[in-house]
Design a protein around this nucleic acid. Sequence first.
DNA 1: GGCGTGACTATGG
DNA 2: ACCATAGCCACGC
Length: 114
Amino acid sequence: MDKSEREGFVRAVYEVVGKIPSGRATSYGAIAKAIGYPRFSRLVGKVLQENGETEKVIPVHRVVNSKGFLSGKESFGNENQMAYLLEEEGVTVENDSIRDWKTIFWDPLQEIEI
DNA sequence: GGCGTGACTATGG
DNA sequence: ACCATAGCCACGC
């Protein structure tokens, strides 16, 4: 993956993350698959971590791992910032995991079908 | 080029 | 449900 390809990848990630509805969340792997890079879940995580500035524009707190665990919470300014943002939109977080994950989960691919 | 690392995931016990 | 393992891939040293 060269520089320009990676730039496209980054834009695609942001595009999908920006479409996640409030009160819902998705996973790194689901995003990777939706943008045509099914095995790049780790890179999705890295891209979101590098983000920082756009944190206020893009709802990166709505992205967790495949089990609904807030694996990226440490990258937010405050300790419980990620959980706070989720709780604020109605998503309950217990032990750094999203409750009723199967219900909260939002699949980008399913959304594209519609 | 080798090696370890990590906001990952699927699978088997 | 929990833990270990093994694929995965960009990146820095």
